[in-house]
Amino acid sequence: MSSLLEVSGVSVTFDGFRAINNLSFAIGAAELRAVIGPNGAGKTTFMDIVTGKTRPDEGTVTFGEMPRSLLKMSEAQIARAGIGRKFQRPTVFEDQTVSENLMLALKAHRAPWRVLFWRETQAHRDRVQALADQVGLEDHLPRKAGELSHGQKQWLEIAMLLAQEPRLLLVDEPAAGMSFIEREQTTALLVELAKTRAVVVVEHDMDFIRRLNCRVTVLHEGSVLAEGSLDHVTKNPQVIEVYLGR
């Protein structure tokens, strides 16, 4: 199976501390993957590298069927290439309405000049409506995002990600701060999404991961400790020692 994203031999050092150590990772075009690991294992740094926020000291990161290196691209270029990222804490534009947030995220030209003369059409409004329906925010379109509840903000952010129509979604702890029912919905959504695109979920919550029912990659001290089904990795003695046996 050809992979959509391929990270190989990547290392990053912060002031002598090796946050990522010779990490290799690959994911296919339509696949759901969970990444777990104890604090400081390098999960967030891994995402930073993929999205272009942090430049690795060595190693390669390639993306797409005709693999392009992501290392020379800016964050915005990477995002336009089709990698969407959801942050740990919900980050939406609180001073703008839900519909403005979604409009901003709709897949379209991003160059300033094109955006300046961009005008919304009925098609755009329909698309925004559809996205809002998908995440259950259809009644909140004219409200300011800052007024939403924490969970609703998480949903809005997910909807913004979907609006970009990414081919790879990086999701950082989506279930944090969500109620039980919201978690159920999130799980279902992620599983559904992974049918048409690659989704990487970083999560602590084992129950949540179990429900995702996917391959799991365990990070430890900046490199991959184990990879396989959840049952497989939870039987790995090293994993038990560093992570599960706490």
Partner: peptide
């Protein structure tokens, strides 16, 4: 319109806007 939205996005959280693909 959207340009103003993007500007306010820069003001409030430019990193988020960057990850939405805006230069």
């Amino acid at each position: 319109g959207k340009f103003g939205s993007a500007l306010r996005g820069i003001r409030d959280d430019e990193q988020r806007l960057r990850f939405l693909g805006y230069p």
